[in-house]
Amino acid sequence: MSNQLITQENNERVKSFFVSLKRLSRIMEHLFASRKPELNGESFYTDEELSKTLKISRRSLQYYRNQGRIPYIKLGGKILYRTSDIQKMLEDGYREMFKK
């Protein structure tokens, strides 16, 4: 039995392990970057996130707020929307397709 040092340079299995580890690290960084923080199990949209999600302008969101058509939270100068409120609003507005 030899006392040879095993490194990435002289062992393909070790090299493959470190390549897989780097790939896994990048995937985890991406997942954590896109994760929304929660408060008491509830997540929130910002004005910008909700406008992108619903594919409407931020001005339209402001109009809906002013009309009382969309629930929101105002925290200082920041507007937040509960994810559950938005889902409920969309479900309540769902209309079945009419058949001719």
Rank of each mutant, 00 (worst) to 15 (best):
N66I: 01
E29V: 04
Q8W: 02
G93H: 14
K99W: 05
L5H: 13
S57M: 07
S34Q: 09
R82G: 00
S16C: 02
P71F: 06
E91I: 06
R23M: 08
D92P: 09
S2F: 13
Y63E: 08
R13Y: 12
S51T: 05
V19D: 14
R59Q: 14
L75W: 03
Y94N: 09
Y94V: 06
S25H: 12
D85M: 01
A33R: 09
H30W: 11
F18S: 00
K55D: 15
E48V: 09
N10D: 07
F32E: 13
V14R: 08
T7L: 04
G41R: 05
R65P: 05
V14P: 05
M97I: 06
F32N: 07
R82W: 01
Q4I: 08
E91M: 15
D47S: 09
K74L: 01
Q8E: 14
V14E: 14
F98C: 10
F44V: 01
L90V: 08
F17A: 04
Y63A: 02
E9W: 09
S43F: 10
S57H: 08
F32R: 05
R13C: 10
L50Q: 09
R95T: 06
Q4F: 03
T7I: 01
T7R: 03
G77P: 05
Y45Q: 08
F98S: 13
A33N: 15
L24A: 11
G76V: 01
Q62V: 04
N66W: 01
D92C: 07
G77K: 10
D85K: 00
L54C: 01
I6T: 10
N3F: 12
Q67T: 06
N11Q: 12
I79G: 02
S57E: 14
S51C: 08
L31D: 03
M97Y: 12
E49I: 00
N66S: 02
S2I: 03
Y64H: 14
K55G: 00
F17Q: 08
R13I: 06
Q87P: 04
F98I: 02
S20F: 10
R82Y: 00
I79Q: 10
K52G: 11
Y63P: 00
S57Q: 09
R95Y: 07
E38V: 06
K78R: 09
L5Y: 13
R65Q: 03
G93W: 15
S2D: 15
K100V: 04
S25I: 02
S16M: 12
Q4K: 10
N40L: 10
Q62K: 09
V19C: 02
Y94I: 07
S43V: 04
R59Y: 15
G68V: 04
R65V: 02
K15V: 00
R26E: 13
M97A: 01
I79A: 04
S60A: 12
T83A: 04
E49P: 00
L50V: 06
K99I: 03
S43L: 05
